[in-house]
Write a protein that binds this DNA or RNA. Sequence first.
DNA 1: CTATCATTTCAGTAACTATTGAAAGGAAAT
DNA 2: ATTTCCTTTCAATAGTTACTGAAATGATAG
Lengths: 198, 198
Amino acid sequence: MTQATLSPTLHGSRPPAAAPEQTLRTAQDLFIRRWGEMGQTWGINRTMGEIHAFLYITGKPQSTDDVMERLNISRGNSSMSLRALCNWGIIERQHKRGERREYFVSLTDVWEMFSIIAAERKRREMDPVLATIKECQKMLDESSLGKSAARQEDVAMTRQRLAGMEEFVEVTNKIFQQFIGNAKSGLTRVAKVLLKAF
Amino acid sequence: MTQATLSPTLHGSRPPAAAPEQTLRTAQDLFIRRWGEMGQTWGINRTMGEIHAFLYITGKPQSTDDVMERLNISRGNSSMSLRALCNWGIIERQHKRGERREYFVSLTDVWEMFSIIAAERKRREMDPVLATIKECQKMLDESSLGKSAARQEDVAMTRQRLAGMEEFVEVTNKIFQQFIGNAKSGLTRVAKVLLKAF
DNA sequence: CTATCATTTCAGTAACTATTGAAAGGAAAT
DNA sequence: ATTTCCTTTCAATAGTTACTGAAATGATAG
């Protein structure tokens, strides 16, 4: 792989202070790399993270070819990753009048992006856990029938643990709800509220 | 793989109301599975998640062999996963007097476990991003030198985007700080603040 | 010191995920 | 209708992560 276009200060030693012409590009590449790495955290792979970072940090509409060239990835990969990001809703297609090719832009508001991702992850990850916990509790309620003493203790312990987990998931859920419900309307209002409070 | 021991209601259709003798076991297995699936969210793989769930939900010290048997995994896998969970600090070794083999128990407090994981993820994921953002900003500050008008606009845009991301990461960091150490009260407080404000 | 029992390590392999490149599909222009 | 330009799809493959089983290591008992 030719990595010449993407090798700033991430790990390793500092480059010899690039010519000012290239500074912007170098800074952007640094950010792109790091954001790509962090993508994993948000359930997005490295390439998708980098594409998103590229669109976000430049703040300009970019075509599939721009993406391919800047990140050194294949056409197929660009196409699929761009589509996936569109499906997530954190980037958007943009049609330029008179141009045949399509462009893509990132959402501007980080809080809104976060909110979108949080909503999806809540739906996919928290909700099923909560449902499962409740189902387990139900099973153990219904079966409060004749049992040996030892068994009863085990059942009691499991009930208790389920309750502990339930409480946790419920509170976490509430926090997510708040973000999801408010990010769009308030934009950075959530940020302000939280900054003030802490 | 023989899956007889681990096949409750996760997806698919409900089993024909197991004999009360097996109800506890079935409920636990259901929870174990779901928690294993969710492990991914927390940067823990399925097996580690399942082991943790098993220790947590039973609330009893369990040996390596108990784990192997209950979850149908190899000795090697058990050993490595148990060690990894110990390193995370969400389970602990327990030596039973007079016994040669070692036992493992989960932490009891979900909030504490969450706090441990959150602290680690902040350190590994948020902190580097923040550092990178600041580095990028510095690069673009220092280089406020002769540029074409077009370039200046690009630089301004990138600065603006970096600032937006910085704000986000800073606030998120503060929230994390809040409950690292006092997880329950911290998170509950975040929830209250958000609920009050909207 | 040797036997016994438990734990750790690790090379090999299985399972899964990401990426490419080329072919097929579509849509505007001629 | 044909060419041109761009996008999408997908089989093949590269790359990554998880798991096993067996051998090595360690630790207690006799």
